[in-house]
């Protein structure tokens, strides 16, 4: 479904990704594991069209999307839920969710979609008419995920969805990721919570200094001595 081939990318003259290749098949949950600064966020942002790679190729459902702008990538059916939630602070929760359905394919069904999404997040439903900035961190993360789902994407990318959340909320986040995948949305997830992520994912890539160093099934990664030592602290 998504194929990333040999991309180099970065910010201005600073190159971060060196020859990164990965692929995601329809219906999978795939994770990218790596230390801070390894290039995980840059990889997601490059796929999302916010950074244009200096070389390499990204194809999605057979179409070359390497040089598309962010809004065009969203139109193709790829949505990124960014790190740090990034809500519209002065808008109500409902308005935030409606912004999620901005892309043309989602706009006509936004009311039905809103009901579906709110059924998954009853807590968000209670907060529907509050401004986003008045919510707690955990609630804001739920709104951010719900907003991403409103686009009804074919591929949903998560960047550190559990960052800064209480443990009980973290497990809720992982449950939601599984629910989303079970409903047929393909998921690409970057998480510092490596163990929990590998438990829900089918495959994983390990990224170090902007290069893919390991590519394995999630099960094998959990057993891999190097991964256990470097990322799981076992």
């Amino acid at each position: 479904m998504l194929t990333v081939e040999n991309i180099h990318a970065g910010y201005g003259p600073t190159s971060i990704l060196q020859d990164v290749s990965l692929d995601v098949k329809e219906g999978e949950i795939v994770t990218i594991v790596g230390a801070n600064g390894a290039g995980k966020t840059t990889t997601l942002r490059t796929i999302a069209g916010l950074i244009t790679p200096t070389s390499g190729r990204i194809t999605f459902c057979g179409e070359d999307i390497t040089r598309l702008r962010g809004d065009q990538v969203v139109d193709r059916g790829i949505t990124l839920i960014p790190e740090g939630r990034q809500l519209f602070p002065d808008m109500t929760v409902r308005e935030n969710l409606l912004m999620g359905a901005y892309r043309r394919a989602a706009r006509d069904f936004q009311d039905e979609r809103l009901e579906e999404v709110l059924d998954i997040f009853p807590r968000v439903r209670e907060r529907l008419h509050q401004t986003a900035s008045s919510l707690s961190g955990g609630e804001q993360q739920m709104v951010a995920i719900a907003r991403g789902m409103m686009a009804n994407p074919r591929l949903l990318m998560f960047d550190e969805p559990s960052l800064g959340l209480a443990p009980i909320i973290v497990s809720q986040v992982f449950e939601v990721v599984q629910q989303i995948a079970a409903k047929g949305t393909t998921v690409l997830i970057v998480e510092q919570n490596v163990y929990s992520t590998l438990k829900v994912a089918q495959r994983g890539y390990v990224l170090e200094n902007g290069r893919v160093v390991i590519s394995e099934s999630a099960e094998d990664l959990l057993q891999d001595d190097y991964v256990r030592q470097a990322y799981l602290g076992i």
Partner: peptide
Amino acid sequence: RAIRAVAQNRGAAELMGIN
């Protein structure tokens, strides 16, 4: 709403598919 979204968080607005 898209106009307000861009004013409040330009980066997030782009992620919604807003040009």
